[in-house]
C-alpha cells in the first residue's frame, strides 16, 4: 500500500437503505450488522425486541434497495437468535451469524437455510465467551472476536481453531470486551477495542501495530467504538457508538473527518410506506421545520466497505443504512 499522495478526499452522503419495519414489510428493526457478499448482495442482521419473536431477523437485499427475503427469529432453537451480534459471508456465499448469548455461530446458506451451528463456551483454544465481531480473510479463514476472553481467534471456515491473539488489559495489544473486526487489503486486522475506547491495528499474525483514538468526544476521540472498516486506500472508518457518529482516520491513525449522519428524505422503502400516510402523520410532519434529528445517526453500530469503496453505516437506532462515498475534486 502506498502512502496517500493525492489531495485529501471529501466524504459525501449518498443515499439510504431501509426504514423501520418488520418482515415481510420491507425494512429493518434495530439493524446491528451488515455483510456484503461477493455478488454485492447485503445481509442485514437485525436485533430488536425480545418480547416479539419476529423482531430478530436477517434481511437479504441489494444496494438498490430491492428486498429479496428474510430469515430467523428470536429464540434459542436452531436457526434462531438471542443476542445476535455480527454477520459475515464467506467466499462460497454462506452466511455466518454470531450470537453472544447462545455462544454460537449459526451458518446459513444464501437462502437462509440453516447449515450448521457451532461453538463451545470456555477459554481454551477454540472455545469462546460471547463471540461478537466476525470477518473472513482472503484465505477464507474466519476471525472471531472472543469478547469476554478479550481476544481474537482464527478458525477455518469449518470451525477448526488455527490461532489466537490478545488478552485482557488496556496496554498495547491488550483488549477489553472488543466488538467489531475488519481487515484491510493487506490482511492487517483492525479491532474495535470497545471498552478501551480505541481501535487497534494488528498485523496478519496478530502483532500490535497501531492504536487509534482515546476516550472522549472530541475530534478523533472515541466512546465505546463498536465497528471499524478500512477502504482500498487505507482510510479507517469507525462507528463511534457512544458518540453517535462515524469518524475517519488516515493510514497512520490521524483524524480526518467525522460524519454525524445526513439522511435526507426517504429511502425507497420509506417512500412506499409513507405513501399510505400511516396514522395520518403527514399533518404532524408538515409543521416541523428542523429535520436534523431525522438525518443524524442514532447508535450507529457497524461500518462496512463494499467492493466499490462505498461506506455503509448501519444506523441501528434509525433502522437504516446510510451510504457515503469518498470523492476527490
Amino acid at each position: 500500500m502506498t502512502l496517500l499522495a493525492k489531495a485529501s478526499p471529501s466524504f459525501k452522503y449518498s443515499y439510504t437503505i431501509g426504514n423501520q419495519a418488520v418482515p415481510p414489510a420491507h425494512g429493518f428493526s434495530g439493524p446491528v450488522s451488515v455483510a456484503v457478499a461477493n455478488d454485492g448482495l447485503l445481509y442485514v442482521l437485525c436485533s430488536y425486541y425480545e418480547y416479539v419473536p419476529a423482531w430478530k431477523f436477517v434481511v437479504k437485499c441489494n444496494m438498490d434497495e430491492d428486498y429479496i427475503k428474510h430469515f430467523g427469529s428470536y429464540g434459542e432453537g436452531s436457526g434462531q437468535f438471542t443476542w445476535p451480534n455480527s454477520i459475515a459471508v464467506d467466499s462460497t456465499g454462506n452466511v455466518y451469524v454470531t450470537d453472544e448469548w447462545l455462544n454460537r455461530i449459526s451458518v446459513f446458506d444464501g437462502d437462509g437455510n440453516l447449515e450448521k451451528t457451532f461453538g463451545t463456551v470456555g477459554s481454551k483454544d477454540g472455545e469462546w465467551d460471547r463471540p461478537s465481531g466476525i470477518v473472513f480473510d482472503s484465505e477464507d479463514n474466519m476471525l472471531v472476536v472472543d469478547s469476554l476472553n478479550h481476544r481474537i481467534q482464527k478458525f477455518s471456515r469449518n470451525g477448526e481453531f488455527i490461532s489466537k491473539f490478545g488478552e485482557f488489559g488496556s496496554g498495547k495489544g491488550q483488549l477489553n470486551t472488543p466488538w467489531g473486526i475488519n481487515l484491510d487489503n493487506d490482511g492487517n486486522i483492525y479491532v474495535a477495542d470497545w471498552r478501551n475506547d480505541r481501535i487497534q491495528k494488528f498485523s496478519p499474525d496478530g502483532s500490535p501495530i497501531l492504536q487509534i483514538g482515546s476516550s472522549g468526544s472530541g475530534h478523533g476521540e472515541l466512546t465505546r467504538p463498536s465497528g471499524v472498516a478500512v477502504d482500498s486506500e487505507g482510510y479507517v472508518y469507525v462507528t463511534d457508538w457512544g458518540n453517535d457518529r462515524v469518524q475517519v482516520y488516515d493510514q497512520v491513525g490521524s483524524y480526518v473527518e467525522q460524519f454525524n449522519g445526513d439522511c435526507h428524505g426517504y429511502s425507497k422503502w420509506a417512500e412506499a410506506r409513507m405513501a399510505s400516510d400511516p396514522e395520518g402523520m403527514s399533518a404532524e410532519r408538515a409543521v416541523v421545520t428542523d429535520f436534523t434529528i431525522e438525518r443524524v445517526f442514532f447508535q450507529p453500530t457497524t461500518v462496512r466497505i463494499d467492493n466499490e469503496d462505498r461506506i455503509l453505516v448501519v444506523d441501528t437506532g434509525r433502522h437504516r443504512i446510510q451510504i457515503y462515498e469518498k470523492q476527490y475534486n
Binding site: A272, P278, E279
Partner: peptide, 13 residues
C-alpha cells in the same frame, strides 16, 4: 385501521 393500506398491512385508524 386506516382506510388506505401501507403496502403489506394497515396502520392505526
Amino acid at each position: 385501521r386506516r382506510v388506505k393500506d401501507n403496502g403489506s398491512g394497515t396502520d392505526h385508524g
